[in-house]
Every structure is written in C-alpha cells, then in structure tokens.
Design a protein around this nucleic acid. Structure first.
Length: 417
DNA sequence: ATCTGGCTAGGAC
DNA sequence: CTAACGGTCCTAGCCAGAT
C-alpha cells in the first residue's frame, strides 16, 4: 500500500510568513510558551546555525544583531491554519491520518501516478493556504517518513521523494548515507546505543537482526526494522481514539511564592481541562495536581497529589474543592515555584459513565456548564471567570512577541492594518 | 502462571 | 542589575502484589 507523509515546512514560521509577506526570504524564529526556547525556524534561520530547542536568552543578542524576526507562539492561529491544510489535504486521498499539527499520513492506494499526484497536492495546499509542504512516499509509514526526510534534505527533488519509484539501488544508497538518528522512532538514547553496536546508518539497521534487537531493546524497534524492509506493521489510523490523559500546565513568567498565585493558576488549568473534556464528551476519574520549582536549579523541588473521584466528572465545580485541598498539602511558603498544572486521567466516554450508588450528586451532568459556555460565546472568552482565578496574575507567562490571530479575530486584523 | 496497576524511560512534535 | 531552559501525549517494560 503506497503511503504518503505530508509535512508542512517549518510550519509555525511559515504561518507567520503567510500573513506578513515582508518576511519572505527573511530569517524567522518562533519561541515556545513563556518565550522559553526555539521551536520553529525558517530555512534562513537554520542556515545561521540556530538549533531547535535553544533557550532564547542564549541567542537574544545574536537575533537582534542579525535581524532575525522573533515570534512568541500563537497556537490559536497555528491550529486554525493547520485545520485549513488538513481540510484541503483530505480531498487528495481515500484515507488520512492527521498525525500532528503539521503532518498527515495518506493512503494513496488507487492513484496511478504518485509523484505527479504529490506535486498537485503541494501546489494546491500552497494555493489554498499559503503553506509550503514536503511529501515522502513509501510502502510503509517508516519508509514514508524517511522519504519525507529526503524530500527536505535534497532540494533538487522539488519537495517530493517517492521511494517506490526510486528503485532499490538508489534507496539503498540513500539509507547508507543517512545516520540512524534521523529515523522516526530512533531518538537520542537509542541512537547512541545502536551506534555502539556498529549500527550507524539506516541501512545498517535495515539489515540488522530484528528479533535480537527486539529482545535487547523494544518491539517498537523490531517494527521499525520490518517497516524498513517494506513489511507493513503500522496502520493508518483514521478514527482517533479519545485521550487517555489530559494535561494543562504552564511555567510562570517569573517564580511565584504565594498560595494565591498558585491557586489562581490551578483554577485556570482546571477550566482548560474542563473545556477539553467537554469538547470530546469525556469524563475523568482521577486528577493530579502538581507544582514545582525551576528544574534547572540544584535545589529542584516538586510535589504532586493524586485524587480519585467517586464519579468521573468534567465539571470544575467538583474539581475545584479537590484542587484547593490538594494545594493545602502541596503549598509551602518561601518556595520559588516556577510551574504548576493539572493532569486528569482514568478517562471514560459518556457511554461508560457509572453513577455512585451512595452519592446522590450526578457529577456528569452539571447544567451550569452549558450556560457558562453560551455566555462566553456571546460576550467573549474573558467575560466570565471563577473569582479565584483572579486572585493573582503573578503567574502569567511571558509573551512579548505575539503576532495577530489573523484567521480567527477580525479586530486583531484591523489593528494590524 | 497470569493478570493488574503503578511507575519510569524514552520518544514524537 | 541579573537571570533567563515548552507543553502534551503515548507506549513498552519492569516490578510488586493479587488472583
């Protein structure tokens, strides 16, 4: 089965460029939340040697000096651009797996000329959304990923690498030239160990003994080896399973010491979690509340409390008292907290909800929630909040270089123009 | 002998 | 002036305890 992997080039940086043509040909850089580190770079920025994940403070001066255009991340905007790309993409294959915000696997069974088809996809996505994409084609997901890597690496391929058409000899050559760590599923730790065993390139891994490596490492590695040999182990997953865990957490703009600051941050995260649960019609039975100090310092300190609810819920009304109590246990004055958050797990879908025999409150049907949603819809996201969220805003993140929500907020576009 | 839950490491983007 | 380093999600594998 021919599989394509379509990947947006430098996605966040490209998004910024679409609505700001002055950035054409200029170096762009997008920062993580809190303006912490580099998470996207345009080609020009990559060429200047700036690495993915670099803490921004280390290169701030360099950026100023070299006129790099720096942006805080704007997920509202990127998510909307992503859905436009995925929407257009969906018309080009029988089946599509949206793998991440900027990638899709596509089942290209039945299309006669794959390379031509891929070029048409690139052209259409660019036309509809302004986003450039690269496409890799292979007989398995791992091979499609590898092909996509080659499509990016060799500009003469014009954005499309079709390994099915390339032939065994040239594919072998490409594998011999590519280090294992470039492979999907082989990260830092694993590649070090593989190299110690003499497996340096993707080709070395392809011809390695899958069974032995499976014993020594994991089945996942065995699957990768099989897929490199065109034996399909990983399917295209079209119907997405509900989340098993939902996290909302954030580093603070600066260290925080008061209970109020922690509480208001946690209440904010509680609301986020509630929204995410409701959007997917899910209910959670467990909640973990955590807070910790700066993890890059020697006196790193972290605490967490896990609570099991008697009934699964999606309502902040049942979660907030628990959070408050958990915070009583966690909180210590004079500690410099740098991050806090909430994790919910043990998640069930609507049809599996059970009502506690001895509890007469129905946790899964809080009628206040839809009312609040409609107020927010009518009067704006910030029109109504829990008071405890407003106890303090010391914890708000740094976000100094944000672009406008070009595609979702008309007022912001008017400001720009 | 087998199943279960809890926990950690490692990986992806 | 100095210090400054993301957020979410998943699975495999291991261990301990229960069946």
């Amino acid at each position: 089965m021919p599989i394509a992997l379509v990947d947006c080039n430098n996605f966040y940086a490209s998004c910024e460029r679409v609505f700001n043509p002055k950035l054409e040909g200029k170096p762009i850089l997008v920062l993580s939340n809190n303006d912490g580190c580099v998470i996207a770079r345009s080609n020009e920025t990559k060429a200047m040697g700036i690495k993915m994940g670099t803490p921004y403070f280390e290169i701030k001066n360099f950026c100023k000096h070299h006129n790099i255009h720096v942006y805080s991340s704007n997920y509202t905007f990127y998510a909307d651009m992503s859905s436009r790309v995925m929407q257009t993409l969906s018309t080009f294959a029988t089946r599509q797996e949206v793998y991440s915000i900027d990638e899709s696997f596509m089942d290209l069974s039945g299309y006669p000329n794959l390379s031509e088809h891929a070029q048409l996809i690139r052209k259409t996505i660019k036309q509809h959304t302004g986003i450039p994409v690269g496409i890799g084609i292979g007989n398995t997901k791992v091979m499609a990923k590898f092909a996509n890597f080659l499509a990016k690496k060799y500009p003469q391929l014009n954005g499309v690498c079709n390994l099915i058409e390339l032939g065994t000899e040239r594919t072998k050559k490409a594998m011999q030239l590519t280090p294992v760590d470039e492979l999907w599923g082989v990260g830092r730790k694993l590649s070090i160990q593989l190299k110690q065993m003499g497996i340096q390139t993707i080709y070395d891994l392809k011809i390695a003994n899958a069974k032995i490596l499976s014993k020594r490492f994991t089945v996942n590695l065995e699957r990768i080896i099989l897929e490199l040999n065109d034996i399909q182990c990983l399917n295209i997953e079209t119907n997405l399973e509900p989340n098993k865990q939902i996290i909302s957490s954030r580093s603070f703009g600066k260290a925080v010491t008061t209970r109020d600051a922690l509480l208001s941050a946690l209440i904010y995260h509680c609301e986020q979690i509630g929204r995410k649960l409701r959007r997917q019609n899910l209910y959670a039975r467990q909640i973990t509340v955590f807070a910790h100090t700066n993890r890059f310092k020697d006196d790193y300190f972290s605490s967490a409390i896990n609570v099991v609810f008697t009934q699964a819920t999606d309502s902040f009304r049942y979660m907030t008292p628990t959070i408050n109590k958990a915070l009583d246990e966690i909180y210590k004055p004079y500690i410099h907290y740098k991050k806090a958050g909430i994790i919910v797990s043990d998640i069930i879908t609507h049809e599996f909800q059970t009502i506690d025999l001895f509890d007469n409150i129905n946790f899964t049907n809080d009628e206040l929630l839809p009312t609040l949603e409609s107020i927010k819809k009518k009067y704006g996201k910030n029109s109504i909040k829990l008071a405890s969220e407003l106890l303090s805003d010391d914890w708000k993140m740094q976000r100094n270089y944000t672009s406008a929500n070009f595609t979702t907020d008309i007022d912001q576009i008017l400001e720009v123009t």
